[in-house]
Design a protein around this nucleic acid. Structure first.
Lengths: 229, 229
DNA sequence: CGACCATTTGATATGGATCAAGCGATGTGG
DNA sequence: CCACATCGCTTGATCCATATCAAATGGTCG
């Protein structure tokens, strides 16, 4: 399943990643493996980290900033698979190629780990093997939840999205939206107009307050939970 | 949706497994553990194999018949995560509990393997660990594909569904639908009426022929592929 | 200030849902 | 063996949530 591959764009990764030359450290945890890869890579806003179909040679962990993963259909429709916040790991594939593309939404610092290295380590270290499995499993769980979202109506989707984001960014009731309305729309399977109208309508029922376009105050979580059902 | 594999015949979990090098013992894959349980379990039509939220103590492999996995929302809306055909493995979870329910669509014979046994074996046999990871990974891949489906329109969804089913059952151009229109609808995020109308319309453009309600002839795969985009 | 982009708001269109019959198999009891 | 009930499917008529098209507003940066 894991192949070695010629690097596409990733050559530039290589130069800035000294980890291959570093003394090996014992890491009982994937995050540890990443830590030893040295300084995080820096991506400017809206930079592509990898594209759908490219060789999946690396695993990534967000340090700062936000990343979106997405796929585009032939006619341009886009499905945003998810948003990766600081601490999130992405880019793990079971095939040789990435199933989604990954792009920064804001300037990002990202740790990188070589896939083949992790696989090799997993062969002897069952803890690493287990961690890899768990990563895939958690991603599966996330997608299962998202699947359910997509059979709901617009207010339900938006309410669930806000609650999930608040949960993840754990910044209390005032949440910042690092992504555009278009990103949200493409994530929820709606249009920007519907997302916008729905937010307005949630505000009109006092469930939220639109501090600014990118900042939302959750006024009544209970109402949102009720709505998101 | 604990179900495995959509596209591609799913029997081959094999591949590079050491125990598979023993030609006379082809049931020694993960299924080897399954064989331990002796004769397959028999389930009558529409029997529940497990329910959402129940302890996920076993892994299952369909021998004959078809299983559907699903979730229901509070208000009764149902999402059918997938259909498990003979050879498919389902019920593998990363949490202690099943995320979906599983129910037979027809009378089924199903092999069972104890989860804890597999985990224990995975600790010493990294091939088993790898297989478990792969199972989760394939399920993830399947869900990613399904996610894309749900942003498409009705004809696209139905066409893609028919093609995928034909692919899996590999029975040529005449495919049997083991599931009801309601099952298909709940899988595709549509209503039975829309599924039915769409099939009729696909027939009217000569893409398919409705031999009977449960048997469909794919007349023009090219057209279906074009439609499913 | 002015250009640009993201977002909101408004007007209208439409795909699929919903409501309601009809139909065709399959099975049951007389 | 047939009349009839049942169930799953199809077809028709209408409705509605969301998409689409279009314009106004607001925020940001030169």
């Amino acid at each position: 399943m894991t192949q070695i591959s010629t690097l596409g764009r990733s050559n530039d990764l290589r130069g800035s990643l000294p980890w291959q030359n570093r003394p090996r450290m014992e890491n009982r945890e994937l995050g540890g493996a990443m830590e030893c890869s040295g300084a995080p890579m820096l991506f400017r806003r809206h930079a592509e980290i990898y594209g759908e179909g490219e060789p999946a040679d690396y695993l990534y962990k967000v340090v700062t900033g936000v990343v979106r993963t997405y796929k585009v259909l032939a006619d341009g429709r886009r499905q945003v698979g998810g948003f990766c916040l600081p601490g999130d790991i992405f880019g793990l594939e079971i095939d040789a190629e990435h199933a989604f593309s990954a792009e920064t939404i804001s300037e990002c610092r990202v740790l990188v780990a070589k896939h083949s290295t992790l696989i090799a380590r997993a062969k002897t270290d069952h803890e690493v093997a287990f961690q890899l499995w768990m990563l895939t499993g958690r991603e599966l769980r996330r997608l299962q939840d998202h699947l359910l979202l997509l059979i709901k109506n617009a207010p339900e989707r938006v309410a669930a999205f806000l609650l999930a984001l608040a949960e993840r960014s754990s910044t209390g009731n005032s949440i910042e939206l690092p992504m555009s309305r278009q990103d949200i729309a493409d994530h929820l399977g709606l249009t920007i107009e519907t997302v916008s109208r729905t937010l307005t309508s949630l505000e009109s029922i006092q469930a939220i307050e639109l501090i600014s376009a990118r900042r939302i105050l959750l006024r009544d979580r209970r109402a949102l939970v009720r709505l998101s059902a």
